[in-house]
Amino acid sequence: MVRVLLSGVVGSTAYGLARPGSDVDRLGVFAVATQELHGLRRPAESVVTTAPDQTFHEAAKWCRLALVCNPTAGELLWLPEDLYEERTPLGSELIGLRRSFLSAGAVRSAYLGYAGQQLRKLRTRDATLPETRARAAKHARHLVRLVEQAVGLHETGELRIRLAEPERIRELGERIADRPESAEPLLAEAEHRLDRPGVLPAAPDERPVEDWLRRVRLANLTPLAAA
């Protein structure tokens, strides 16, 4: 038995980059019945499907991902209100804790690390295959978005999901897809800005996260049948 605590539409729809025919990606957090965590076999920590495109993480796993500022997991707490599809009271509490997950080093490592991965994909793709061009542009858009989100988090403590200028991101992505080396100044500038003092703490605040997870476990503890 599982209970969805929070879910919403993420990805290109959330960023404002979706076009007709774009996939609709969903992300969520669920809790299993607490008793299931104490048997011989632990329940699955993630459920991923491709038709439709959905990723749901069990509450503890999602918290571990968010505490290292995983960009994909963390965006669930910063969605525009209209993109939440399921939001329980515990889910709303989790949104209220979103700044507790943030830390300067983790934001730098995770966001710039993911951006660097996108650049490596661009550099190693087989440019002779026409189907890789659209994929390259997608990687380039992710790179630009991740860099800008990292700087925004570092300097303001806020994660902007819906991009202010999606067409600019799209056009810049097209240029970087054609010339991957043109992303290097963008990454260098982001590293320079993240070297400056920012507003994020040195470490995440784990105590309220731990308290929330314990409330989740209590809420999903069902009475045992009499022996």
Rank of each mutant, 00 (worst) to 15 (best):
M1K: 12
M1A: 11
L5S: 01
L6R: 06
S7P: 00
G8T: 09
V9A: 07
V9M: 10
V10Q: 06
G11V: 06
Y15P: 03
L17V: 11
L17I: 09
R19M: 13
P20R: 12
D23N: 10
D23C: 02
V24G: 00
D25T: 11
L27G: 02
L27I: 06
V29L: 06
V29Q: 06
F30Y: 14
F30G: 00
F30S: 00
V32A: 14
Q35E: 15
E36C: 07
G39V: 00
G39S: 04
G39A: 09
L40W: 13
R42A: 15
A44E: 12
V47D: 03
P52N: 05
D53K: 08
D53Y: 02
Q54P: 00
Q54L: 14
A59V: 13
A60C: 04
K61W: 02
R64H: 11
R64Q: 13
L65E: 11
A66E: 08
A66M: 02
L67W: 04
P71S: 09
P71I: 05
E75Q: 15
L76C: 11
L77C: 05
W78I: 02
W78C: 10
E81V: 12
P89A: 05
P89C: 05
P89I: 04
L90D: 10
G96D: 04
G96T: 07
R98H: 09
R99K: 11
S100E: 12
S109R: 15
Y111N: 09
G113W: 11
A115K: 02
R120C: 01
L122Q: 04
R125T: 03
D126G: 03
A127H: 07
L129W: 05
E131C: 06
R135N: 01
R135T: 10
A136G: 10
A136Y: 02
A137V: 05
K138C: 01
R141W: 01
H142R: 13
L143D: 01
G152C: 04
L153N: 08
H154K: 13
L163Q: 14
A164C: 03
E167Q: 14
R168D: 15
I169M: 07
R170A: 15
G173M: 02
E174H: 00
E174N: 04
R175I: 00
I176F: 07
A177G: 03
D178R: 14
P180K: 01
P180T: 04
P180I: 06
P180V: 03
S182R: 14
S182P: 08
A183D: 05
E184K: 03
A188N: 06
A188H: 05
R193F: 07
L194D: 12
P197M: 12
G198E: 09
V199P: 02
L200C: 02
P201K: 06
A203I: 00
A203S: 11
D205V: 04
P208H: 07
V209D: 00
D211H: 14
D211I: 12
R215M: 05
R215T: 06
V216I: 13
V216N: 08
L218E: 15
N220P: 00
N220Y: 10
T222A: 13
T222Q: 15
P223L: 08
L224W: 10
A225I: 08
A225M: 05
